[in-house]
Design a binder for these strands. Structure first.
Lengths: 84, 84
DNA sequence: TCCGTATTTCGATGAAAATCAAAATAAGAA
DNA sequence: TTCTTATTTTGATTTTCATCGAAATACGGA
């Protein structure tokens, strides 16, 4: 049950977000970018999903992950409000 | 060797930053706000310092911690650039 | 120099998180 | 329904992190 800060604290998860920035990816495509097992990448994806930093849609057997830009906007607002 | 995201992933450290938002505090004053030992709070302060989220000045025996607002600005810029 | 206060560093411990291999689930095709 | 592919879940292991008590350091005052 991770919040957005916890989700961002891991380097692999930040790399995943960077990949998703260019375009949506399937779980398998993301997997291929790392020297990690599918189980591990799937775990990171679930943390990102829990924090609502990514969204998913299913197409046949594949699950497509994409950025939830709203979450980033919220984060910026949080930081911006903090500084006031 | 924690970065800004790692530093923000801990709730106690975020509370420390909130306290520092109102005014600078000595290490001892910050300590008094938590049910944690001085050693533990000192550890959290060192993580925040490493991430450059706080600055310190020494006055006699006491060390005064204050927010480094520039780091927050940088963070906002990073997130903002990411979304472009 | 010796003492007291403030803070940090060290070494150990328990809890949380990352990771893997293997089993389970989901969906479409044969 | 059985097979294949894509992905997740489970259970175990390893690694990282928060935490503590005790020892060490830094500084100013007597």
């Amino acid at each position: 049950m991770k919040d957005v800060w916890g989700a961002l604290s891991d380097g692999t998860r930040r790399e995943i977000l960077t990949l998703l920035k260019s375009r949506p990816h399937t779980a398998g495509e993301l997997c291929d970018q790392f020297e990690l097992t599918g189980a591990t990448v799937s775990h990171h994806l679930s943390v990102l999903k829990e924090a609502e930093l990514v969204k998913t849609t299913r197409r046949a057997q594949t699950i497509i992950y994409s950025l939830n830009t709203a979450a980033f906007q919220n984060m910026m607002k949080t930081v911006s409000d903090f500084l006031k």
